[in-house]
Amino acid sequence: MEPLLVVLQGLPLTLIVSIGSFIVGAILAVPLSLGLRTSILPLRLICRLVVDLLRGVPMIVWLFVLKFGISSPEFRLTSLEAALLGLGTISAGYLAEIYRAGLQTVPRGQYEASQALGISRPIAFFRIIAPQAVRIVSPTIATYFIGLLKNSSIASTIIVAEMVFQAQAYARQNLSISGVLPYVFAGLLYIALSVPIAMASRSLDERLRKSVI
């Protein structure tokens, strides 16, 4: 059971990196998605460029740049900070695109009804348009989160001691056949984490679909 216990030691950091960077991304994606839809052309182009860059850069490259590229004596990111910032910003790029798609599917009539009622633009956006958009794309967001959960293992390359890092460390010290065991356990743990998320997202989606579409 030793390999399992070793891998389990990495579980908290796996959760911290995936949930933390998801939150960072989910928040940063709000202004970005608005920027993708603004009628102010220069702003839209800048947001489009940022989103495309964030989606285009390989995670491992971006993490290395943040962890080892910024190394002045006064300012340097810890491994965890670099992982949260790196995976968070990349998530922002993907989530901004998902939000944008969601916003696009909200019918024009919803904006018009809000306008005709004299509801101010920010309130209309946050209370009427955005909730409907999020409901429509909630399965896509869940899928992205599951992907992010597994991609958090890339943080092991910048020495964040999450599950895969622990598995590697154990395997390096136990070169026998049991060396593969921690990876098997890590794999099973990822599955054990993702399957409930997928199931919850499906049932949530079914419930929301009844009330929205």
Binding site: P107, Q110, E112, A113, A116, L117, R127, Q132, R135, V212
Partner: peptide, 25 residues
């Protein structure tokens, strides 16, 4: 204004649809 396509807010109950604009406007 009343629209051809109703344009009620689908994520709110009927009561909330009528309450929400009063609260904010």
């Amino acid at each position: 204004m009343v629209f051809q396509s109703f344009n009620l807010f689908p994520h709110m109950t009927v009561l909330q649809n009528v309450v929400f604009p009063q609260r904010h406007v």
